[in-house]
Amino acid sequence: MSELLKELETNKEEYGRVKHVKAHDAYYSIPFDNLPLEKNRYTLIWLPACPRAQRVATTVQLLGLTEWIDTIELAPRRLDNWEFSQPFEGHHDLTSLFSERKDAIQPCLYDKQHKSIITNDQYNLSTLFATYWLQASGFDSYPVHKRPTIDRMSGFIFKTINVQIYRAGHEENRVIKKQEETKLAQTFQLLNQHLSDSHFLLGEQLTDADLRLFPSLIRCPIYEKQFNLLCCRLEKYPHLLRYVQELYQLPSLKQTTKLEQIVDTHFRSPHNLQKFGDDYSDETVSSIYRKLLTTK
């Protein structure tokens, strides 16, 4: 058993309950299990630069749900609010679509029949699709017999990668920043060791846990520069690097990894320029990703 799997077993309650906490905090206009799977009824609203949104968009592709769920993207640059790349249902921005609520969070699922947001449960949307709408595809990203382990792995990724990257990246105190970066580096090392004996996180089958890890890892070259996190240099972790390069070649992941928009949002969106300055405003996909995506 790898050290990572030992960590999941030791703290299984802590990591396993993340999904329930996130579901409790999310908005639902109707319980998801009451939703019929009807063609052309739903729209996934997502921002391609966002790792959590990419996971959900990839799940739609992998489960073969494109005839049931269409997608609309938010524009890559934001000042005060995320705008739609093109008008949607008479709305130009995400906040106006959430007129009854203030927390206009993406990704979110929209019901065209009732003209309302169903849920903004960004953490659980991908597993909800796989749980209730799996009949649309032969692929299963959330197999029943692996769900407890997937939930623990996903909770681990959320707490030690997804959240930790931003905790370390936004920390202004140099001493504390170094401490937070050390924690992040330790997690990368743990994952690197685990993947030395495993093709995917849970063996030879791609699961929802991989769809949570990959979007954060593919953005590591961005985080290294924008957040000044040298531990995000994936070349330091050969098995983790191999993992990213191989997953990027999967059609569904490659299709939803929109590198131009990722680079544009992080380095040229007005709200990020205000936070981080314009030191990297001239970066391109080639300058950021040339080494990472070059397979040997």
Rank of each mutant, 00 (worst) to 15 (best):
Y110I: 04
S216I: 01
H199W: 06
F84Y: 14
H91Y: 15
P251Y: 08
A23W: 04
Q255I: 04
L63C: 07
P270H: 13
A75R: 02
I30C: 15
F200Y: 12
Y28V: 09
L8A: 05
A75M: 04
T182I: 15
T160E: 15
S269D: 14
H24L: 04
N272W: 13
F84N: 13
M153K: 05
N192M: 07
S29Y: 15
H239F: 06
Q189W: 00
S154N: 11
V18D: 00
T59K: 01
I30E: 15
G155V: 15
P76N: 12
I161P: 02
S286M: 06
L253V: 15
N40G: 06
G90H: 11
M1F: 03
Q189H: 02
S99V: 10
K236V: 02
I69Y: 07
S116H: 13
L8N: 09
L79M: 09
A136D: 08
T58G: 02
Q122I: 08
L240P: 03
G203V: 08
Q186C: 07
K19H: 06
P107I: 01
E224F: 03
T265M: 12
Y142H: 08
K178T: 15
L250R: 08
R52M: 00
L259K: 04
K112T: 09
L293Q: 07
L62M: 10
D208G: 03
S154G: 12
F139E: 11
F156C: 05
P221M: 11
V21K: 03
D140K: 05
R152H: 01
Q226A: 04
D210Y: 03
T149P: 00
C232Q: 02
S85T: 13
T160M: 10
K236T: 12
R219W: 04
T187C: 06
A57R: 05
G64F: 10
K112C: 08
E9Y: 02
E260F: 04
P238Q: 10
L97N: 05
K115H: 14
R212C: 05
E204T: 08
D279V: 13
P221G: 09
N228E: 12
H266Q: 14
K236F: 08
E67Q: 11
A130K: 04
F98D: 09
Y289W: 10
N120Q: 09
A130F: 00
S126R: 00
Y123P: 00
T71G: 11
Y27L: 12
W68G: 01
Q164P: 07
